Amino acid sequence: MPPDIMRTLSPLIPALRRYARALLHDAWDADDLVQDCLERAIGRWHQCRDDGNARAWVFTILHNLAMTRLRRATRQPRMLPIDGAEPASIRATQEEHLHCQDVMSALAHLPDEQRSVLLLIAVEDLSYLEAAKVLDIPVGTVMSRLSRARDRLHRLLSGESTRAPLRIVKNAMNGE
């Protein structure tokens, strides 16, 4: 394997794992996904554009593989992991741990499109343009999804309702 591939891909692995775990909600599946992504990136390295943005290209591969797995998973029965506990590298206080659980739960309640955009931009620090390339959508769509995701996440974390209030519609026929 050429050294430029390793020099490019190695620093991306922690970010790829983080994004995969946020998408799949399972550490084992996420690690398998990252492995598949890296295998595909190495095998198709010749397809990587020379525009210097291999990071967006690799995230695109990971995102597409994740979406394929998620579509398949909806057709198959879901298996629950026996042990979902992960060792923490830093012990959080009880309050920090609870806040982290609240954020992760709120993220899980976001629609996939909003969660993906939010994670790519807020966590993985991709630009709007890079996120648009990864998700294969226009930059304006990235901006609107990000805005909706941030708003919904804020409402979920503050305990506000995320549903629109019901409107009373008068019946014109009955004069009601």
Rank of each mutant, 00 (worst) to 15 (best):
L129M: 10
T141Q: 07
R150N: 10
P81K: 03
H46I: 04
P81C: 08
L23K: 10
D102V: 00
L9D: 13
C100I: 04
D151P: 00
T8A: 15
E95M: 04
I168R: 12
R91W: 13
M1S: 13
P2D: 11
E86F: 04
E130C: 02
H154E: 14
A122I: 03
Q114A: 13
C100L: 11
L38C: 05
L33Q: 02
H154R: 01
A172W: 14
V103Y: 01
A132W: 04
G175E: 07
L38F: 07
H25N: 08
P81D: 05
D4F: 05
L110V: 07
N171S: 11
L80K: 04
R40N: 09
Q35W: 10
T68I: 04
D125I: 00
R78D: 10
I61G: 07
N171H: 13
D136M: 10
G159L: 02
D83V: 10
S158T: 15
G159R: 03
R17S: 08
V169T: 15
G175I: 00
L107W: 01
G140A: 07
L120E: 09
D125L: 06
M79T: 11
R21D: 08
V123C: 14
R7A: 15
L120H: 03
R78N: 07
I137D: 12
P3C: 01
L153V: 04
P81T: 05
P2C: 00
P3I: 05
R78Y: 09
L98N: 12
H46P: 00
P138Y: 08
L38H: 09
T141K: 09
R75Q: 15
P165L: 05
E176L: 06
L156I: 02
L120K: 03
E95Y: 02
C37Y: 03
A85M: 04
C100P: 00
I90H: 07
L80N: 08
W28I: 02
